[in-house]
């Protein structure tokens, strides 16, 4: 392809840059594929890495606290606190969360809300919706969430914006499933996003050791969830400030 008439340096030739383009693209794609293989094992629900919890995490209390070692906020899996008072097996929990996610997709929630920070900006982020202090306290939360989702326009607190959530005509089963999905979502380790978030007041995130064996038994393949996953977490969930969280992500690799 090179022109005989015009001398070009080898490093400026069409041929050289074609090879460069192919090599660079191939190499980067290969690195991405290798990283993808690794990431996919890490983000398996309930995997050893503990970033994405098993679905049965909805049987437990979930906290969000400052991790002093990592210098960012992390979710903590506390003692048993089954959703709607009903303890589920991993398979049942998965089916419930699955129904919830299907419902959230089917009702196109993401084009008003953000989910893990992605989506639209017309309504609040849902990442920590389960832990939002707006629900008042742990005891009232499930009831309030259910009431709200059943009839959002009537129960809307628009905080002066006038923006109400339209009635999605959710069935009772869909409401429960959506709440389960949100509870599971709040336990995903999102590298400290959102920063400085203060969860609603909840009971302790640690418990007496005797109930642990039973809990990890029921969870099957998942890691022992009954004890706090993070070594350095403190209870109760701190309301203290999270100074410069996220600003100190040094040496992340």
């Amino acid at each position: 392809m090179s022109e005989p008439g015009i001398p070009t340096e080898w490093w400026a030739s069409e041929n050289f840059w074609r090879k460069c383009a192919i090599f660079v693209t191939g190499f980067m794609a290969l690195v991405l594929v290798l990283l993808t293989f690794h990431t996919l094992t890490v983000i398996e629900a309930g995997s050893e890495a503990g970033r994405v919890p098993a679905y049965s995490v909805i049987n437990h209390r979930i906290g969000y606290v400052m991790d002093d070692e990592k210098r960012r906020m992390m979710p903590v899996i506390g003692p048993k606190a089954p959703l709607f008072g009903e303890e589920l097996t991993e398979a049942e929990a998965m089916a419930l969360v699955d129904h919830g996610k299907l419902t959230v997709q089917a009702r196109n929630c993401m084009n008003c809300h953000t989910i893990l920070g992605n989506g639209a900006y017309y309504a609040p982020d849902l990442t920590k919706a389960w832990l939002d202090p707006g629900w008042g306290n742990e005891q009232a939360r499930e009831l309030l969430m259910t009431m709200f989702l059943k009839d959002p326009p009537t129960n809307a607190r628009t905080f002066g914006t006038g923006r109400r959530m339209p009635n999605q005509e959710l069935t009772d089963a869909e409401v429960r499933a959506v709440i389960a999905y949100l509870k599971w979502m709040s336990a995903i380790d999102t590298n400290g996003f959102p920063s400085g978030f203060k969860p609603l007041p909840q009971g302790p995130l640690t418990e007496a050791p005797q109930s642990q064996s039973g809990a990890s038994h029921a969870l099957g393949t998942s890691p022992p969830l009954a004890q706090p996953r993070r070594p350095s977490t403190k209870s109760p969930p701190p309301l203290a400030s999270a100074p410069a969280a996220g600003l100190s992500m040094r040496g992340a690799t």
């Binding site: 400085g196 400030s241 999270a242 410069a244 600003l247």
Partner: peptide, 11 residues
């Protein structure tokens, strides 16, 4: 809560 100073630095 993050100190206002932090967000000013970020911005």
């Amino acid at each position: 809560m993050v100190e206002p100073e932090v967000i000013h630095r970020v911005a």
